[in-house]
Design a protein around this nucleic acid. Structure first.
Lengths: 214, 214
DNA sequence: AGGCCTATGTCAGTAACTGTCATCACTATA
DNA sequence: TATAGTGATGACAGTTACTGACATAGGCCT
């Protein structure tokens, strides 16, 4: 049983500019080179048909160095999720006190959706890679689950009781999933934040309907 | 790129009883022996600290045979999910036409919950193993996602439009997750179906609240 | 009797990861 | 200015999950 902790090597900006003056020991931005090489290869020939050795070779590095930067072969596509998670959590924390829990979550998701839409090209390419492979879909789900847990925690900070917080967060993620799927499917007819709002309305309508309401 | 299809070897009941009369070529119920060995070892020393070779050895079989019965090391704990999924889907299909989508889903989940509660001891042991390992949690999430997809398809059969069906199914799964977590946490104070009903009520209340209802 | 079927064994191979130690440009300090 | 770190990478061996190909030998059918 061993837990590997990944520390991200950082090369100073000075070192990067100095390299081209012949000063650096290594070509700069190893992590970025690995990431670009991986995404290119995953796109070209698929995730399963790409070996870590090939990624490293294209980035002019060794396999060992790949695993120093990324915990595993999948994580290349997911390490950015933590930044998005922080964005979401602070958006929920900053929502006005008057906002209902579900609305606070949805507003936060709209903001995140806007960010994703800025990186539209990258987002779609990444989504294609993930959709094509079962292992990657697994990883995506656990990232979303972690997002839901973080949102639930943020809601509890706002005074929402435990189970309601979990349920609201999970429902918010469901809203996001459905909206994102529509966005990826249709060709930019509606923006991601718009789709998120629409999906939320649908959730509310669905929950309100039916005989056994209380 | 290769997809391995697992065909489950079946030994006839006759062959099983005949074995103890010295007739069979192999000890019977290889699959069951592998499953029991795996669960025992996962419980004793954890999933990561158990090798497939050890499981096979305890079951008096080879590693290769393990992979003929289970697609991978995790699948031992999840192959039963397909039966549960079929139960869920047919319960949704059989719900009365008058039932609202979300209520049809929840009723189905209550039935599944009752089944899980029968296997209470096994369910809890399995849950402990899964909770202790990230890879297993990933696998569980994708099984739940597949369940959600199957439920959504069943709802569409009932005439529920696409996005609403997805959203209802996802919400149903969220309800189930929260209820199951409570059930595993508290000591049999409330039954699983009861907890599912309570969780559903909470979802409905949450969706109804707030200013931006329409 | 002969031949097919099936569950398992045997064995060799690939590729994802991990641990350990060496290297050597850069940096801080004496 | 010598010297002692520091940090990112390389080199390399080892483990383990998984796959493919072929062998084996009971049971069954004709």
């Amino acid at each position: 049983m061993s837990v590997t902790v990944i520390t991200i090597p950082q090369m100073s900006a000075a070192a990067i500019t100095m390299y081209h003056q012949g000063m650096g020991r290594w070509e700069p931005d190893a992590r970025g080179r690995l990431e670009r090489a991986a995404i290119a290869l995953y796109s070209e020939r698929g995730f399963e048909n790409t070996t870590v050795a090939e990624i490293a070779a294209r980035a002019r590095l060794t396999e060992r160095t790949f695993f120093r930067h990324f915990a595993d072969k999948r994580e290349v596509l997911f390490w950015g999720a933590s930044a998005l998670q922080e964005l979401l959590v602070s958006a929920v924390a900053d929502a006005p006190d008057s906002a209902a829990p579900l609305d606070a979550v949805t507003t936060a998701l709209e903001a995140a959706g806007a960010v994703l839409e800025e990186r539209g090209e990258y987002s779609r390419q990444r989504q294609l890679i993930i959709a094509a492979n079962a292992d990657l879909r697994e990883r995506e789900l656990i990232k979303l689950a972690s997002l839901a847990a973080a949102l639930a925690a943020a809601l509890r900070q706002r005074g929402v009781p435990g189970p309601a917080a979990s349920l609201t967060a999970e429902a918010g993620i469901a809203v996001f999933k459905v909206a994102f799927a529509s966005w990826a499917a249709e060709n930019n007819q509606r923006s991601l934040p718009q789709l998120i709002r629409a999906s939320l309305q649908e959730l509310k309508a669905m929950a309100a309907r039916g005989p056994a309401t209380g």
